[in-house]
Design a protein around this nucleic acid. Sequence first.
DNA 1: TGGATCTGCACC
DNA 2: AAACGGTGCAGATCCA
Length: 600
Amino acid sequence: MRVIDYAIKGQTVHIHVVETEEDLLDFESFILANQSLLAHDCETTGLDWWNASAGTFRARLWQFGNARESFVVPVEKGDSFRGAVRWALRTARRLIAHNGTYDLHVAEECLGIPMEELAPKSWDTKLIAHLVDPRAVKEDGPGLKLEELTKHYICEVVAAEVKGSMTAIAKELGVKKDEVWDSIPIDHYRFLLYAGMDPILAFRLFKILIPKTPVRSRRRGLISWEHRLAHITAKIERTGYLLDTKYAQEKASELAAQQKHWEEVARHHGVDNVNSNAQIITALRERGVKLTKKTKKGNVSVDDEVLTDVGIPLTEAIVKAKKAGKWKATWFDRAIAAQDPDGRVHASVNSCQARTARMSITGAVPAQTLPAGDSYVRHCFLADPGHVTVSSDYGNMELRVLAAFSGDPTMMDAFHRGLDLHQITADAAGVNRKAGKGTNFVVCFGGGWKAIVEQYGVAEAEAKKAVKAFWETYPGVKRFADRLQREARQAGYIYTGTGRRLPVDRNRIYSALNYFIQSTSRDITARALIEIDRAGYTKYVRLPIHDELVFSFPRERVRELAEKTARIMEMTIKGLLIPVDSEIGEQPWGSVLDLEASKH
DNA sequence: TGGATCTGCACC
DNA sequence: AAACGGTGCAGATCCA
């Protein structure tokens, strides 16, 4: 047995590296002695756990530890090692992992332990860290990655020396960062140190973070609630989404042809690279075009709006070439490349990601950003064979949350009686409905008249009038916003009704209202997922998208299941219903959009 | 070669 | 008094 000693702030920790089958005896003793609470982690060849059955993905190391020592087991070396790890995972009564969803996928795919077996006894330090402080490093927060949390809560030196080491190792070995996990020798000293420290750090973080969790969050049961949710989104990831490969490939070639054509036109007009803003600026200036719009950093802007306004053949070609190229790469190429052996693609769902705890969906199915204007892209995602797509979304979720929690009588009355809230705002201000609608949304975002002007093309005077009228028409909202801002100013954070603590920046106190609305809305969707899981319907859920759930239901039961799940999703808050509308489509997700388009 | 930053664009 | 909230990703560019 090889032992690596390392010091955390002068305190020595021991990393035991299992090398032979005889070494497993000590490993098993350690597990038995620590089975009440064990941290664990695994190192793998990549992140594409869905390719385990294809053999291109495998687990290499599995590590277990407590605050002072850890064991590193080379699972790739053979069945006896895999068997020992399988036994350890099953023997542990409670497991801690950082971003443990990933380890659950790997345990299932590589060790054959169903996710459902480990999930109920798993704790995730990423989720607990989010409840303590959800802010990213760039927002002056601790961050949510293990390296960031180690730096913030444990020791800066350890974070840099250990968690930051794989980049340097890749460089020394002369491989790309993404490739180092597969190619690094299993007995590489600093790889073993990196791997062995992980459970030690996760264990320590758990002990540090649990007492820091807001009392209100704990009392409301948020810790276990978020864990249940994370396990549900893990199941959704595992199911994946069936890809219409033929359609995706057709569209990819179609876009490639368009891109090629429009790039040639642009080249003919003197722009070789349509993605180079510098070239575009030079070419337009040579033609005497005045470019006045500025980027956030004060540079010359040549975005879609500017180019469309210029309106010459060159700018038309640039816009079309850029769009074709980006759509091909972002939507179709990615999905095609990420298919598993069954032709399914697996999104990565971060169940508790944004400051407001909104989920984020990344990877092969960036569900939250798929073009929604038409079915062009969404058409490539299919309900299962014999199934159809159902999209169920909440109506006016954020405004209803605002109405319910502010208790504003005018707003509540409007929703209760099914009146048009946008028109009410418009009438109060003496502006058109578009301006009224813009005002309702912009106020929810913490914006002012300028935002209404920019986003909704409303005249300055109208926008100013509308904002003033909004606050006068809905005095309850004003009082609610003021209360939240006062709370934020005094404490530095607000609490939501679910007991979540949200930090509010001192120089952006106005965002308190939006944080409350956005976070509460997220929790309503999260509650729906938990209830849908309880009812046994998770297998039908394909994706959650903010205020919407996308399902794949068997065609012959679609009406019944759509109805049942919609009723589960619906929720009444302070007497106000947040209604759900289900759209039943055909097999492709895109068919739902086509249906909606044909209605209007 | 890869990281960091900027710009632009897709969404709720 | 007013205040645009939350994301992910591709490509260019600069820098070490």
